[in-house]
């Protein structure tokens, strides 16, 4: 249980996309805290708003997307809180934070590195840029030494040679390690990992996950871990936010989420995954129906058409996210009667 004041507080975040066909509420009232050194998992299926939430924190939501309302409070090293939602996405304050204080590990390391510059040059650029912003000067040679050190930290063999490699010369696992080195290059206090292991093989995934665990312990970096893989969530995170169609269905400590889930969606999700231990060749319990299209969002609770425990009121009113246990909240009328206004 963290005692430090939260590093990041997201409060009632709403992101909308104004399309010709209507407005999509991609993130519809998300709130959660991240404490220093904590690993928070955001789990959900496609279209649940997990990636848009991450983009909103970094102020990288592209048009026609728009931060409609909400606060993103980030505490700097001096302890003062800034609302990132109020900063100009292209302004100097946001640009100084991005990469230096909050860094991103994207899903596709192939697409994230430029193919015409060496990986080393791209990381050196980031180190020098952020040093200049803080009024320091770092020479290219110094930055290069830092990169070699980082490569060694993230387990890249022959770092002196790999610095001068192009991203397409590296294997998937090495590329993801180089990406992690880049994200760590300015010693960020918050790391956002957006499906960092989805595109890589399972033995490489195990290596990357072990690496992230070690780095968190070493640098006390807080991590927001976005994934759809419940196995990764269980093994990596200490606090979990479960999202569905832009809304938080449930959030709580990882043990509670897996062993005492309060929301029917969380329960159904956990039951429907085949495990390496369960019965074989027997029907799995399923969640009926399919994910609704964003334009055909159900009224009331977004999960009610697929919910095995839906009640008459679920179709008309949207339940609030309220505490159900220590640090655990759920948005479900099974636990309380309070609806969103």
């Amino acid at each position: 249980m963290p005692t430090d004041p939260p590093l990041l507080q997201v409060k009632d975040l709403r992101v909308t996309f104004g399309m010709d066909e209507g407005t999509i509420r991609a993130v519809d009232g998300t709130s959660f805290d991240v404490h220093p050194g904590e690993v928070v998992g955001i789990v959900g299926e496609s279209g649940c708003g997990k990636s848009v939430t991450m983009k909103a924190i970094l102020q990288l939501v592209e048009r026609p997307g728009r931060l409609a309302s909400g606060e993103i409070l980030f505490r700097d090293r001096q302890g003062t809180q800034t609302d990132l939602a109020k900063l100009d996405p292209r302004g100097p304050q946001m640009r100084a934070l991005r990469g230096a204080e909050i860094a991103l590990i994207p899903q596709e390391p192939m697409a994230a590195f430029s193919p015409v510059h060496t990986v080393g040059a791209q990381i050196i650029e980031a180190i020098q840029l952020h040093a200049t912003q803080e009024g320091r000067r770092v020479s290219k040679a110094e930055a290069r030494e830092t990169v070699i050190g980082l490569f060694r930290d993230v387990g890249i063999s022959m770092p002196e040679q790999r610095v001068d490699a192009y991203s397409w010369q590296l294997s998937g696992g090495l590329r993801q390690r180089a990406m992690i080195a880049m994200a760590l290059s300015c010693k960020p206090r918050l790391l956002i990992a957006d499906e960092p292991t989805t595109a890589i093989d399972v033995t490489t995934q195990a290596q990357v996950l072990a690496l992230l665990r070690d780095l968190r312990a070493k640098y006390n970096t807080a991590i927001i871990f976005i994934t759809h893989d419940l196995g990764v969530i269980a093994q990596m995170t200490s606090y979990v936010v479960v999202m569905y169609l832009g809304r938080v269905m449930e959030q709580g400590p990882v043990d509670q989420i897996f062993h005492a889930p309060a929301h029917p969606y969380t329960r159904a999700l956990l039951r429907s995954i085949p495990t390496i231990h369960g019965e074989t060749r027997t029907p799995l319990p399923v969640i009926s129906g399919s994910l609704p299209h964003p334009f055909n969002r159900p009224t009331g609770c977004p999960f009610h058409p697929r919910c095995p425990e839906a009640m008459p009121g679920c179709a008309t009113a949207t339940p609030k996210l309220l505490p159900v246990a220590e640090r655990q909240s759920a948005a479900c009328f099974l636990h309380h009667q309070e609806a969103e206004p």
């Binding site: 995934q205 893989d229 969530i233 269980a234 043990d255 897996f258 390496i276």
Partner: peptide, 23 residues
């Protein structure tokens, strides 16, 4: 390969002995 699969249960500790190297 089996050890590398993350178990969807936080009470099971991450497996040791991660496979080194690449395919």
């Amino acid at each position: 390969l089996m050890r590398a699969v993350p178990v969807p249960d936080p009470r099971v500790n991450p497996a040791d002995g991660v496979l080194r190297g690449e395919v």
